[in-house]
């Protein structure tokens, strides 16, 4: 009786597993297959899923004939600078929020939360108007600062929560020894915060990688575009670029982050589930 019930459960769960895996993986698998098709295969009716041969000619074509490598490089610059710069600002601030008592602290934390929820479109509008006037569109230093501004609210909030779990006795001893706050942060707090710091690096890298509105509005020079905006330009000039090339470009812009996600899955899951505590 009991065995029968468990078997029924198992069958049901496997059915859910299979449907879920198909729903989530098929679009990516189809894109991967498209990226290896030739033009005749592309227009084949009825369509076949698998390409005839595994080859990377479409990838080579897109790398040679479009700016995709440049887009990739730009994206890496933005992602790296954002992930690093955000920490530089958020860690000291989180330390202050975690260890200091001051009157408007709770209001400031609430302010951070509000910033976190605001659509980047809202701030992109006036920033465009100013940067265009000053001739500073396409300026990477400013672009990076804006990316950082968008990420510090979440990061500060998250690292503050992480530091709150670290016993205060730990920095107390160092303080008595006369260490400066910066030294305490660097040599005592940061080492114990490593998992939290790694999580926020990944989440911020991911967010900067897929950031669209800001560069879409604030960058108008082709060679300065990041991947996200570059892809939509490729898509809209679809006479020059057919589906198999577009699919190859999509794969190029998806693979680095997907690998990062699979490798650091545990960190990501623990960061996201951080707001649910047992």
């Amino acid at each position: 009786m009991k065995n029968k019930k468990t078997r029924g459960k198992k069958v049901l769960i496997y059915a859910i597993y299979i449907l879920t895996a198909i729903f989530f993986l098929f679009p990516l698998f189809w894109t991967l297959c498209l990226s290896m098709k030739t033009v005749p295969e592309l227009f084949q009716v009825p369509p076949k899923i698998l390409p005839k041969t595994i080859h990377f000619n479409n990838y080579i074509h897109i790398i040679k004939n479009t700016l995709v490598l440049k887009y990739l490089k730009n994206t890496f610059v933005l992602v790296g600078a954002t992930a690093f710069g955000t920490l530089l600002i958020s860690i000291p601030a989180a330390y202050a929020f975690s260890r200091n008592k001051f009157r408007i602290k709770n209001n400031m934390m609430f302010g951070l939360l509000i910033f976190q929820m605001i659509s980047p479109l809202v701030i992109a509008i006036p920033l465009y108007s100013y940067l265009a006037k000053l001739g500073l569109l396409n300026n990477y230093l400013i672009l990076i600062m804006i990316y950082i501004a968008l990420r510090v609210p979440f990061t500060t909030w998250y690292i503050t929560g992480y530091m709150n779990t670290i016993p205060k006795e730990l920095d107390q001893a160092a303080k008595v020894d006369g260490c400066s706050r910066i030294r305490i942060i660097m040599s005592i707090i940061m080492p114990v915060c490593v998992p939290g710091i790694i999580s926020s690096i990944i989440i911020n890298a991911m967010s900067a990688w897929s950031q669209f509105i800001i560069p879409f509005i604030l960058v108008d020079k082709g060679e300065k575009l990041p991947l996200s905006v570059g892809i939509i330009n490729l898509q809209s000039t679809s006479e020059a670029i057919t589906t198999h090339y577009l699919a190859a470009a999509c794969m190029i812009s998806v693979i680095p982050m997907v690998l990062l996600y699979i490798i650091f899955q545990k960190f990501i899951v623990s960061t996201i589930s951080g707001s649910v505590k047992g």
């Binding site: 989530f24 993986l25 679009p27 894109t31 897929s210 892809i231 999509c250 997907v258």
Partner: peptide, 19 residues
């Protein structure tokens, strides 16, 4: 396989579903 969908930029999700 579900979590992978989070790693994909919204703009690419649009392109993939369009295909």
């Amino acid at each position: 396989s579900v979590i992978i969908s989070m790693a994909i930029p919204g703009i690419i999700i649009g392109v993939i579903w369009r295909m």
